[in-house]
Structures are given as C-alpha cells and as structure tokens.
Design a protein around this nucleic acid. Structure first.
Lengths: 241, 241
DNA sequence: CGTCAGATTGAGCAGCTTCAACGTATGTGG
DNA sequence: CCACATACGTTGAAGCTGCTCAATCTGACG
C-alpha cells in the first residue's frame, strides 16, 4: 500500500473538515496489508465477524442485503476512499455482504488500530463516525427516492449521486459505472426488463449515454431536475466536526 | 428529568454491551434540560443546526425526508430511549426533520457534553456510535423491504420491528402505535387508500387488530413469516464493543 | 348541531412485473 | 477454426399491484 493510495480517503475527509498532519499520520499508521479482489468477488459476507475494516483504494463495490426469497437489494455503492465495513468495528457482526463490481484494490485496517484511534484521537474518531453517518444519510435519501420517485427519476438520482461523489460537474464527461442492468435493477428495486426500458428512455431523452460501463452525462441540469437531486445529504461541507 | 427516565436508554445500551456504573454516571451528567413536545409538534426541522441532541424519554416520534414534490418519506420511528438526532453532533446540519406522533417527553444533551464523552470515555463514545450504526442498519433493512416485499409484507415487517424493539413476544399483546393511515402510508411508501386496504386484509387474515393507536398482534409466528422478519439487523446481542 | 380529521369504499388506470423469446459479444474446448 | 456455452442486453405481451380521483362514513369536539 503506497502513500498515494490514501489520497481518496483524505479527500473524502478534507471535503468535510480539516485534517491535521498528525491525524493523517495516525491514519497512515493504521493501514495494514493490502489485497486485490477480482470483479464479482466477495469483500465481506453477511454474518462475518471481521477483525478489520476494509478501505477501498480503487475500483467499485456494492453493499447488498439478501432476503429469504432470494432477491438482492443493493443499499450502497462504494468508490475509492470509502470504508465498506467501517461499522463492523462497532457492530461486530456484518448484517449484509459487500462484493466487488470491478477489480478492486483494498487495504485492511485492524479493529485494534481503530480502537487506538478512538482512545488517542477523539477528533479523528468523530470523522470516522462521520463517514458512517453519511452512509446513513444516503440510505435515508434512497428511501425517500424509492418512495417518491418513479423509476426513471430514481435512476437519474443514482447517477447524480455517483457523479457528485466523484466530483463530476461538466456536461459530456464520462464516468465508469460497472453495473450490469440486473445489478442496476437490484439497486433501484426494478426488474432488469424494466431497467432496460428506463435506460432506453433516458437515452432517447438525451440525458445520458450508457455503453458497457461508460456512462456519459449529456445534461447535468436536466438530469438533476429529473431526479430532484439536492446534494445537501452528502454533507460535502468543510467545517469543524 | 428524573433518574428513572434514563432507564429506556440504559436498556437499549445494555442489550448490546455492558455499561459500567461510571459510564451510567457520565451519561446522567450529560443530560440537560427536559421538555414536552405535543403530538404533531416538531422536534427538529430539516436544515437546523442544533447545538444539542434530543433523547426520547417517552412517546413516539418519526424521522422524515421531504421531497421537492411534497411527498414525505418516514425513514425511522423512535421510541423511548432513542436519540432522534444524535447524528447532528457530527453532521452539524440536519438533513431531515423529526416530529412527534404522540405527546413526547424529551431531554436535551448538549453537544459540548458529547464532545467530552468522546474525549474521556472512548468506550461510551463507541456505544453512542453504535446507536447511529443501528439506525443505518435499520435503514438498510427498510430499503431491502421496500425492494423485496409487497405492501402487506412491508406493513407486517414494520410491526414486527416495532414489537421487537419494545420487547414484545407473546400473542395477543397490544402495543400503541399512534400512526394515522396517512402516516403509515408515508412510512411504507403507499397511498393512504391502499394502506387502508392492506390493513383490512391483515385484519381479515387474523394477523393483527388495529383500532385507533392500539395494535394487537394475534400471531407473531404468522406475522413474522409474512414479513420474512429476522431481527439480526437490530443487533440486540450483548458483547464487548 | 356543524365541523373536521381520519377511515372506508369503488372505479378506472398507470407503472412495473413476469414470462418467454431472441440478439449479440466473448470466451472455450475439441 | 468451428461449435458451443455463457453472460448480458433487448423486445413483446399479458397481468398484477398499487395509484388517483371522488364520494361517503364515523367519531370527537366545540
């Protein structure tokens, strides 16, 4: 694990508060071994009791809950800089799984190291807490989107969120979203058939292009309006926490 | 605010980990003034930047996200012992509102006192973190329920969750859920008309009775099966955190 | 007694699902 | 090099789930 691999995490944190050199140092010292997870591979499984948390260094992964009837609901999408299972530090037992969408590089942070942070770096501990609180805020927003928005608007909302988190802003830019239509359906709570129909509509409206894993936003303005997207829930505001 | 008012919070925490006498003391010292919020009153509003968090002492309240189009999605239901906005301590700005369903007694905990806890009581700080992580876990479960379950099963799931959190287990027991059918619809993402139809069905199946705010579970067994309810996501397990 | 919030009912329709089939690219073993 | 398998995307048709609109009912309360 190289120093520069921590840049996405530092960026996530520095979008929300200042980070002292000592705190960066403390984070760097926490990072344990790294690993490669191939596309479609498991990162953690529901029921696991990990003794470390997993930081995404590159690639994309999803959190999902399975139901007894076999359906899968994706509850979160993770990019570089995200801890996928920071909550296992306190919850102990995973109540859901995480799997890689693309080839992912990850780094493991032993829970023992996190305990030390909560003891010696209260402010940094609050920033880790913050990361999990933003997860929860995103969950609430997804719930609201599920309840209030029709299929196309939900799809637009998801793309807006991913774009906003990756820092995209200009029309015509392309981002990689390695979701199949089945997986997109599992995220939006739609059948794959209807997901396909929705994507066709969005193409027809010249909102987006989506070829393979390359998604091009043709008009942020219209996409945001379609999704009623307001990024406040991402809490990307630098202030003392 | 009387000592005994803290019992629901202590119960919540002691369901999940041991709490030392010193930690209980530290919590008690945090509690600031109390207040009464009448039914239908606001507890916090979206956009607020509170300098304290609100602990429910009695009554029931809901968290909700509003959308631009005017619809309301209830994302969480709170009972005695819940912090309704503990996350505002770290998030600073509320991204949603909380309002009282019934008359509620609440107590305020200044954020300054919480800062002291994160500095002086790392274990207690982790337990507060835990409470917010369980919120997130419930959000994920609701997302999964929204995606996978039909209306009646979602309603059953909600009742199971509230019953489980209140410690109910025996058939024929009655709990108070002061939700109107409109509010229940805002929770389950259903129209009030269809919510009514679903309740009638559940009455017809002899799963529940629901008169005013009095909900009687006639058969936990069938209700749980209907909802595919598995309480693991509530993390009610006592272990070192 | 009138008013109002909440519950209930019916009818018609839209959004989304399921099933089933087919298309297309990529990879694999013979 | 071809035959085949596999994963993903696309299309059409039929039907269910839940929505909207609109009216009526009920009980509580001033």
């Amino acid at each position: 694990v190289h120093e520069s691999d921590l840049r996405p995490l530092f960026r996530e944190l520095e979008l929300r508060d200042e980070l002292s050199a000592g705190e960066k140092q403390a984070i760097a010292e926490c990072i344990g071994e790294g690993a490669l997870v191939p596309a479609r591979g498991d990162i953690v499984r529901a029921g696991d009791r990990p003794d470390r948390s997993t930081l995404m260094l590159s690639g994309m992964s999803v959190r999902y809950n399975l139901t007894r009837s076999g359906s899968r609901q994706i509850t979160s999408i993770h990019i570089a800089g995200d801890f996928v299972d920071l909550h296992s530090f306190v919850l102990k037992q995973m109540d859901h799984g995480v799997s890689a969408l693309s080839d992912c590089r990850v780094a493991y942070v032993p829970h023992a190291a996190l305990t030390r942070i909560t003891q010696e770096h209260p402010h940094l501990a609050r920033l880790l807490w913050l990361l999990t609180l933003i997860d929860a805020s995103r969950h609430r927003q997804w719930l609201a989107a599920m309840g209030a928005l029709r299929a196309r608007a939900r799809a637009a909302h998801l793309i807006c969120e991913i774009g906003a988190r990756m820092g995209l802003a200009a029309d015509g830019e392309t981002l990689k979203i390695p979701l199949t239509q089945v997986e997109l359906g599992d995220t939006l709570a739609l059948s794959s058939v209807y997901t396909n129909k929705v994507l066709q509509e969005m193409r027809g409206m010249r909102l987006i292009e989506w070829v393979g894993d390359a998604v091009t936003i043709l008009s942020w303005d219209r996409l945001r309006r379609e999704a009623q997207f307001d990024p406040a829930y991402l809490h990307m505001r630098r202030e003392p926490r």
